[in-house]
Simulated scan of single mutants.
Amino acid sequence: MQEIIISRQQLKILLAKQKERTMKKLAALLAILSMSIAQAQIKVKINGKPLAENATVKAEDIKTFDVSFTNPKKLSYIGSGRAIFGVALLSPKNQLIEEYIIKKDGINGVESLLADVNVFLNVIADANGETQFKPRVLDHPFLEMLGRDDDETIKIEINLMFFDKIGYEKYGEPVVLVKKFVFMIDNKSNAVAYVQKQQEQKAKEDAAEAERDKARMAEKLEAEAKKKKKGVLGSLLNKIN
């Protein structure tokens, strides 16, 4: 009987130690995650909550998307240069789908942008329909762009860069001002819906084309019938004459 009591006590001790180790591991992981977020030069919030770099978020869960930067590299000369704060959408093959940018030119413009450290800017339009980020490839808002793409996974790259002006409307190589921030979007729900919509659209177009073919064939047969009838009448008239 004594052995059973000791075994139970030992089991309780083992379970307690295992739980303690698990909690320590979890605390360590949370500490690393918090440190990663704190040290990042670009910070991202999805639905108001900080997002860690290389995290994955589902497209259908995104309601708001805000970004900020801190500690940008000091520029020794700005002149007529250009600064771009950009949010790029990339396919699994690393091809650009779209990029939303804030672009500032010249000393005043560049300095005003770089002065906005730790100021979160909304990529998705706010309640008033406003955002400083503008699409530079197509003309669709961020969430709408996700819904128009058939990629199940989309990589988001956020950069802050400066370009020296080297001629009329010509700019040099980019100077990276902060370490880029990358995360992934699980876009499967949008991709499935988009493909289905495309298939439905194609079916409608095919049906419409079939109706047009049918109408053209009917017109052709009618024209041939009229021509044949005209030929018969002409032949009869010739015989009468």
Rank of each mutant, 00 (worst) to 15 (best):
Met1Tyr: 03
Met1Gly: 14
Glu3Trp: 05
Ile4Asp: 05
Gln9Ala: 01
Leu11Ile: 13
Leu11Met: 09
Lys12Gln: 11
Ile13Asn: 12
Ile13Glu: 09
Leu15Glu: 11
Lys17Leu: 14
Gln18Glu: 11
Lys19Ile: 15
Thr22Val: 06
Lys24Leu: 10
Lys25Phe: 14
Ala28Glu: 07
Ala28Trp: 02
Ala28Asp: 09
Ala28Lys: 05
Leu30Ile: 02
Ala31Pro: 05
Leu33His: 13
Ser34Trp: 15
Met35Trp: 14
Ala38Glu: 09
Ala40Met: 08
Ala40Trp: 13
Ala40Lys: 09
Ile42Phe: 03
Lys43Trp: 11
Val44Ser: 03
Asn47Ala: 12
Asn47Arg: 02
Leu51Thr: 12
Glu53Leu: 04
Asn54Ile: 02
Thr56Ser: 04
Thr56Tyr: 03
Glu60Lys: 07
Phe65Ile: 01
Val67Glu: 00
Val67Thr: 01
Ser68Asn: 03
Lys73Trp: 12
Leu75Ile: 04
Tyr77Cys: 08
Ile78Thr: 08
Gly79Val: 02
Gly86Leu: 06
Leu89Trp: 10
Ile97Asp: 00
Glu98Thr: 04
Asp105Gln: 12
Gly106Pro: 00
Ile107Trp: 08
Val110Met: 07
Glu111Asp: 02
Asp116Trp: 12
Val117Thr: 15
Leu121Asp: 01
Leu121Pro: 00
Val123Trp: 00
Ala125Arg: 04
Asp126Cys: 06
Ala127Thr: 08
Gly129Glu: 01
Gly129Ala: 00
Thr131Val: 00
Phe133Ala: 01
Phe133Thr: 01
Phe133Lys: 04
Phe142His: 07
Phe142Ser: 02
Ile156Trp: 06
Glu157Ala: 15
Ile158Thr: 01
Asn159Gly: 10
Phe162Thr: 14
Asp164Gly: 09
Tyr168Cys: 06
Glu169Val: 12
Lys170Ser: 08
Tyr171Trp: 14
Pro174Val: 09
Val175Glu: 06
Val176Arg: 04
Leu177Arg: 06
Lys180Ser: 11
Lys188Thr: 15
Ala191Met: 07
Val192His: 03
Gln198Phe: 03
Lys202Met: 03
Ala203Gly: 00
Lys204Val: 08
Asp206Gln: 07
Ala208Phe: 14
Ala210Cys: 01
Glu211Lys: 10
Arg212Leu: 09
Arg216Gly: 01
Met217Leu: 06
Ala218Val: 11
Glu219Leu: 15
Leu221Ser: 08
Glu222Lys: 13
Glu222Cys: 05
Ala225Pro: 15
Ala225Ile: 12
Gly231Leu: 15
Leu233Tyr: 03
Leu233His: 08
Leu233Phe: 11
Gly234Asn: 10
Ile240Asp: 01
Ile240Arg: 05
Ile240Lys: 09
Asn241Asp: 13
